[in-house]
Design a protein around this nucleic acid. Structure first.
Ligand SMILES: [Mn+2]
Ligand SMILES: [Mn+2]
Ligand SMILES: [Zn+2]
Ligand SMILES: [Zn+2]
Lengths: 138, 138
DNA sequence: CAAATAATTGCAACAATGTTGCTATTTTTG
DNA sequence: CAAAAATAGCAACATTGTTGCAATTATTTG
């Protein structure tokens, strides 16, 4: 029935107003959200600390993943399927659009195989592309 | 003769104590530096604001490049050759070592070609790998 | 369902990081 | 070396992130 409650329950998180509202925001939003986006979008009577803590536990549980950036503005987006507590498996590429400024998960674009010289042990790879998204390019 | 002075002069930056000291730090360091590393490494009597402004102008001139991260701790590393005012051409992969915590430019590992669906226009791609570096892995 | 227990929230206080305007100092130019 | 231009340091402020704790809310238990 209630999608949001289920997601929280399945991840052994108690169902609170804050978590529901933030998760709802992610489900309603195309593109990734920064902490500040949530602060604005989640209504006034929301403590910043709660948002930090909620984002942290969502990441920990594998509900959302963090997308790196080179300008101190981490964004977060919903994980798809197989992510769970402790292990993320988001093998897709991200796009930061220079026109609409959105950060998008391109689920259909898979992180390529990169050959490292002998001696390195690679755990995972993040790919962030800068460019123009489909919508803005037409 | 003086390598550091030349770099600054070639980039039309006046040669000041601050810039020399920060550039020296980069030249002496294996791995990328965060703002805080520079704050510690550059001596006490150094204004934080000067470091911010120096890093910004170095990036702008193509002397250093910023390396994205998912934990709000941008690092900077020296650019190699062809970077100049306005255009960076750092087509290498970065590695964040989970043991020594260093962020390394792997100049010999080139950013792979990624196929995007039609409609996107890609300007550049950042690749950051997490794993264990050669030194820590032996 | 109500009480007991467990978990989360908001608050306050604080630390760390980043920005801006202005003046004094330093660097470059001629 | 003097004049002009650029930079550094300072102060004040804004933004972002962290921690401890008491009050509130959610879950479990009987
Ligand atoms: Mn994603
Ligand atoms: Mn690099
Ligand atoms: Zn766009
Ligand atoms: Zn290492």
């Amino acid at each position: 029935m209630n999608n949001i409650q289920n997601i929280l329950r399945n991840n052994k998180l108690s169902v609170t107003e804050g978590r529901k509202k933030i998760l709802q925001l992610f489900l309603n939003t195309e593109g990734a959200l920064a902490h500040s986006d949530i602060e604005k979008g989640a209504g006034e009577n929301f403590d910043r600390v709660t948002i930090y803590r909620t984002l942290h536990s969502f990441v920990e549980k594998g509900i959302i993943h963090a997308i790196p950036s080179a300008d101190n503005s981490i964004k977060y987006a919903l994980c798809k399927d197989e992510c769970g507590e402790g292990h993320h498996h988001d093998h897709h590429v991200h796009l930061v659009c220079s026109v609409c400024q959105k950060t998008l998960c391109l689920d259909e674009v898979v992180v390529p195989i990169v050959n490292f010289p002998a001696g390195y042990c690679i755990k995972n790879i993040e790919v962030v592309a800068n460019g123009i998204c489909k919508q803005c390019n037409s």
